[in-house]
């Protein structure tokens, strides 16, 4: 900053903007050093800078709330819904949404799950999963798997009734 207008004092010259840049640390090193010399000797500038730094610190004390855990999921679900009319992008959006299964809209997921359960219940009477028995040490009956599904569904419901920040708690 060259002092061509007689005074070297930015406040006197009405050029406080340079003090603002000085406080924000965006002034080039040379200019900053020059100004620093002036500020230490000029009480008006010193006061200005001190006050600005206090404002700066006050603003920095403003803590923020965590972002909702399912923000992305909700957004991707909205986009997927928008895309439903135009199926070109559908495949990969659904995959993206799938990665955030927390965002699966209940109005879709719940009836779908309920329907699946109903169908399965119907099948289970005659032929669970219509497959041969699995020959393994551990076996779960179709009915038991349904119980696991139900429990997971309920777990998801309970999770979604709590504030999302709970998810971040260790």
């Amino acid at each position: 900053m060259k002092s061509t207008k007689g005074s070297a004092c930015p406040v006197e010259r009405g050029e406080e903007e340079i003090l603002l840049r000085y406080c924000a640390g965006t002034l080039a090193a040379e200019g900053a050093a020059q100004l620093e010399g002036h500020v230490t000797s000029c009480s008006r500038c010193r006061m200005w800078v001190q006050e600005q730094q206090m404002v700066w610190r006050a603003l920095e004390s403003w803590e923020l709330e965590p972002v909702t855990a399912d923000f992305d999921a909700a957004l991707l679900a909205r986009i997927a819904r928008e895309k439903e009319a135009r199926p070109g992008w559908r495949g990969w959006w659904e995959r993206a949404v799938g990665a955030w299964s927390g965002g699966l809209e209940w109005r879709v997921a719940v009836p779908a799950a309920a329907l699946a359960l109903l169908l399965a219940a119907g099948l289970a009477v005659t032929n669970p999963f219509r497959g041969e028995p699995v020959e393994t040490a551990v076996r779960l009956e179709a009915r038991e798997i349904e119980q696991a599904e139900r429990a997971l569904e309920d777990l998801e419901m309970l999770r979604q009734l709590e504030p999302p920040e709970e998810d971040k708690k260790l």
Binding site: S101, A113, A120, V134, V138
Partner: peptide, 22 residues
């Protein structure tokens, strides 16, 4: 994998996703 292999794919995917999230 063995236990779930005969499940309908959609239900199986949902179940696995939920298990993984947990």
């Amino acid at each position: 994998e063995r236990v779930l292999q005969n499940m309908p794919p959609e239900r199986r995917q949902m179940l696995e996703e939920r298990l993984e999230r947990w």
